[in-house]
């Protein structure tokens, strides 16, 4: 497995871990009724606002850990630049991410015009935000393995 493939694989695992652990933490510490409230959306606002920095910091720490571990285990340095293949793969993966998030955004509008609870809108935005990142990474891994 090449360095790039390992890096994407670690990124997938860290995304899954961070999102799952943070969701469990946020739900367990939520005030009674705040998740399903029809008028107070502070839970969802704080969920998104806290998840973003937590996710960024955790990913940076995991990446540093991966670089150090990989250097010790495989004596392999991180490539100092991105070449044309990396850029093409990233662009294609980003396009898939964008499509997934766009579908999620459209679906998230449905609760606003139907009888579905409004918190479904936030739930769908968060779930599809996570899925877009995850599927983009999986696509990246696929393109590295199968080619573009």
């Amino acid at each position: 497995m090449s360095y790039q493939e390992k890096k994407v694989f670690v990124s997938i695992i860290s995304s899954l871990l961070i999102f799952t652990l943070y969701t469990i933490y946020a739900v367990n510490n939520a005030e009674e009724g705040s998740i399903t409230s029809a008028s107070d959306f502070s839970f969802w606002g704080s969920f998104i606002l806290v998840l973003l920095p937590v996710s960024i910091v955790a990913k940076i720490i995991i990446h540093i850990g991966f670089v150090i571990f990989n250097k010790i285990a495989a004596n392999e340095d991180e490539p100092s630049f991105e070449d044309e293949l990396d850029k093409i793969i990233e662009l294609r993966a980003d396009r898939i991410s964008l499509h997934v998030f766009f579908i999620g955004f459209i679906l998230a509008m449905i609760p606003l015009v139907t009888d579905l609870p409004t918190y479904f809108t936030f739930l769908l935005l968060i779930v599809f935000g996570f899925l877009s990142d995850l599927l983009g990474r999986i696509a990246q891994l696929y393109f590295y393995r199968k080619g573009v």
Partner: peptide, 19 residues
């Protein structure tokens, strides 16, 4: 050639047509 080894591997395998 100024690329990563991954790119040479992909070109050799026929998985990527270079610019």
């Amino acid at each position: 050639a100024g690329v990563t080894r991954q790119t040479i591997v992909a070109i050799e395998k026929g998985n990527y047509s270079p610019s």
